[in-house]
Amino acid sequence: MSVRRLAEKQPDSFAFTPENQAWAAKEIAKYPPGRQASAVIALLWRAQKQNSYWLSKPAIEKVAEMLGMPKIRVLEVATFYTMFNLEPVGRYYVQLCGTTPCMLRGAEGIKAVLRKRVGEPGHVTADGLFSWSEVECLGACCNAPMVQINDDYYEDLTPESFAKLLDDLAAGRAVRTGSQIGRVSSEPIGGLSALTSLYGSDGKGAAASHDEKPGA
């Protein structure tokens, strides 16, 4: 966390695409009249997505205008939440989880890869492909260490697999999202060690218990 300012170089204008415009209208309509400001985070989020993952000054002003809010109120929201990027980011924006579980499972190694490959947090590589920042817990502790790249999670990383992941992204090769060691969501890595069968050893417990209706 540090002082957050709008980027120095700003585009001249911002306009939602027709689809996003329609989406925004739907979002605003969710709230009763006079409460349109409630849609501010949703609209800022969509504006950021449309604008290569960062919020420009014209985008903030556009959202303020759409919601009838004072500009400063929208700026307050945009600077409060770190999920809003106020500076341009790389095409692949890596958010590295550095909170305790990931750290214990080797996030420092992932960080070293990022430093070597991309540079300091916030720095965009010369080819415009990568930038990264360290974030707090992203809620995938079972699959630590992990990163979020744009909208996807990449879990169970090792420095080697992560470096390869970055290489694949840079080369435009297909990558797999989620766990990088092939497990499904957060299943145990070495296969099941408990609940190996359903409802007892004979596997009939389920049917039996199912038939026992109270009062039957």
Partner: peptide, 15 residues
């Protein structure tokens, strides 16, 4: 308004 948060909160007018 107050931009930023926590220790980095700052009172300012829009830009």
């Amino acid at each position: 308004g107050a931009i930023g948060r926590g220790e980095d909160m700052e009172i300012t007018s829009y830009l």
